[in-house]
């Protein structure tokens, strides 16, 4: 089967930045769940936003950047308006900021539908409400009319998920979808997202800091460090990661039932910037 996304040697430099934020990143994605982990500033979100073509001023180069039949390197913005929100979408981190504070939740969900499908207001409303049910919101009619400040974080993020999955996209990028949430609702929200992604056969890119979370919810994992992918492996092989940075990350994860000694701190080395093959 053709991949949903095919990225080869993607490099991104922000306007005015001396060095690229992302360098030579390559991966392909089928209808599977790919995790991208790495520390803050390693370029995870930058990769996600480049795929959505949201980085208007950054300089983006790649050998290949293909989403289904769309060439993301050269597609005109007109084409992207058709792709964004319909065939690929993105779940942002914190519903407190990512929802428009002065519009009702339901209206914002329905707008995602109406942008791409010609239909009446009442049909869009019905769709939105059905979608709210799918993200396990018990009284969707009421939630439809609430403003973002009137819903909890977990509820807000489910609204976000509903908004981004309503058009049945082929690709969803979830940029730290649960890090702004209470620990108690994180798993619940992730399970909802995971269930929908599997049901609908969506290709998912899950960006996260959290190795344990990626291990549980992804098929494959990319480990990024300083703008590069230093290692790519199956989620179940995560414990056998070879790259010293990956090993350092793993060692720095807290484990239930582990020792109570302080967690080790990463001691960075310049050699980490080399990809794994070169180190061998």
């Amino acid at each position: 089967m053709d991949p949903v996304l095919d990225i080869q040697r993607l490099s991104i430099r922000y306007a005015g930045a001396p060095a690229p934020a992302v360098r030579d990143v390559s991966f392909t994605l089928g209808r599977e769940r790919l995790g991208i982990v790495g520390e803050s500033g390693s370029g995870k979100s930058t990769v996600g936003r480049a795929i959505m073509r949201l980085l208007d001023t950054a300089e983006i180069t790649a050998d290949r950047m293909q989403f289904e039949e769309v060439d993301l390197l050269n597609a005109p913005e007109r084409k992207m308006l058709d792709v964004r929100g319909k065939r690929m979408s993105m779940i942002l981190q914190d519903p407190k900021f990512s929802l428009n504070p002065i519009q009702r939740c339901g209206h914002q969900i329905a707008e995602a539908y109406r942008t791409h499908v010609r239909c009446s207001k009442s049909e869009a409303r019905a769709r939105a409400i059905a979608m709210l049910e799918q993200v396990h919101i018990r009284d969707p009619e009421r939630v439809y009319d609430l403003y973002p400040h009137e819903v909890s974080g977990g509820m807000g993020q489910r609204v976000m998920i509903a908004m981004m999955l309503l058009t049945d996209p082929d690709l969803v990028i979830a940029d730290e979808p649960t890090s702004a949430l209470d620990v108690t609702v994180r798993l619940q929200v992730l399970r909802i997202l995971d269930g929908l992604v599997r049901d609908k056969g969506i290709g998912l890119i899950m960006i996260s800091h959290d190795l344990n979370l990626v291990r549980a919810f992804c098929d494959r994992v990319l480990i990024m460090y300083a703008g590069r992918v230093v290692e790519a492996l199956d989620a179940r092989d995560l414990d056998n990661a070879q790259h010293p940075y990956s090993r350092g990350l793993l060692a720095a994860q807290p484990r239930i039932g582990g020792t109570r000694e302080p967690l080790p701190v990463l001691a960075r080395q310049d050699s980490w910037l080399e990809p794994l093959e070169a180190q061998a």
Binding site: M52, L54, L81, D82, V83, R84, G85, K86, S89, M90, L92, F97, S98, L99, N100, P101, Q108, E111, A112, T115, H116, M160, M163, M164
Partner: peptide, 9 residues
């Protein structure tokens, strides 16, 4: 939320 709007298309 402006990013969200653009993501919606």
């Amino acid at each position: 939320y402006v990013t969200t709007a653009r993501v919606k298309g």
